[in-house]
Design a protein around this nucleic acid. Sequence first.
DNA 1: TCAACCAGTTGCATTTTGAAACCAGAGACT
DNA 2: AGTCTCTGGTTTCAAAATGCAACTGGTTGA
Lengths: 166, 166
Amino acid sequence: MDDAHRSSCPINLTLEVLGDRWSLIVIRDIMFGNRRHFRELLNRSEEGIASNILAARLKRLMEAGLLTKGDDPSHQQKAIYSLTEPAIQLVPLLVQMGTWGRRHRPVSEELSIRAQLLEEGGPSLWDAFMAELRALHLGAPAPKRSVLYELQAAYEKVAAQRKAAR
Amino acid sequence: MDDAHRSSCPINLTLEVLGDRWSLIVIRDIMFGNRRHFRELLNRSEEGIASNILAARLKRLMEAGLLTKGDDPSHQQKAIYSLTEPAIQLVPLLVQMGTWGRRHRPVSEELSIRAQLLEEGGPSLWDAFMAELRALHLGAPAPKRSVLYELQAAYEKVAAQRKAAR
DNA sequence: TCAACCAGTTGCATTTTGAAACCAGAGACT
DNA sequence: AGTCTCTGGTTTCAAAATGCAACTGGTTGA
């Protein structure tokens, strides 16, 4: 059934799931952008993913156990994609990617403010964010603090400042 | 010159450099396996990289500023690949990948003992390891502690135990 | 009834990957 | 001097992945 693995090294096995140009982009958009529907992921994608690629990635990530697909009660055709617990545990990895990118790549200010806050907040902020994701995606009780809201507010503040400066 | 970037998001920009199935494998082998020559990377690769792919990845990583190529004084034809400071700062990212893989993928005990030690050691161990890498790759003064040696010793101990158990 | 919206699929050209054979220069050994 | 091995790769060609654009079949609300 499964293809054989190249090796049993943890870094390699992680790369076998996430080592391509789109999988983590999709997870990032679901996680930080709270995009839960196919069209949201397709049309509001900063990077412009193609619909066939998106469909293939969603399928692969479901097979890998990182996403689940559910029905949206508001619309018979609408599917809701949710993160699983393993996907939620990618938060520290994504934060490290953001940290490294912010330090060594030509990032923009508004798109890196979230990464900055998550880096500065450290593991306790990551935990709060993961608790919130468990509420949004796994039906856990809602925590008091909304890290997602804080990140979004910070993004909008920077975006407005930069717009005004032009 | 450069292709345009898909977006200025730090996660995306990191993926544009490292988001494929081989780049981080090459960096892992240089970093944790101390493989500095083409043939070492080729023949001692756990995953069996092809020579054309290895050559292409080394070239790309040099262009991205993550590797440098130097001469080996012992042999006119021999090239030594070294990590740059940005590549050394990938240590926390690779540790997170190891941590996630160890928790969610079917890793083997001997190939994940290093990841376990690095996870348990926390940021202070990562800093010691990065200091050692700066000595090995950038000519910095050698630190007292060799994390690389500790990791290798732990690997060999586990490998010997598992061999004896069979 | 009809336009907009929904999650994708299809066809096709281009690019990337992968396996294997091959190469020319440099050292080592006899 | 001749030859064997090691060096960092390149070449060739098939197969797979990617990317773009058009398209599909059904749903929903006005």
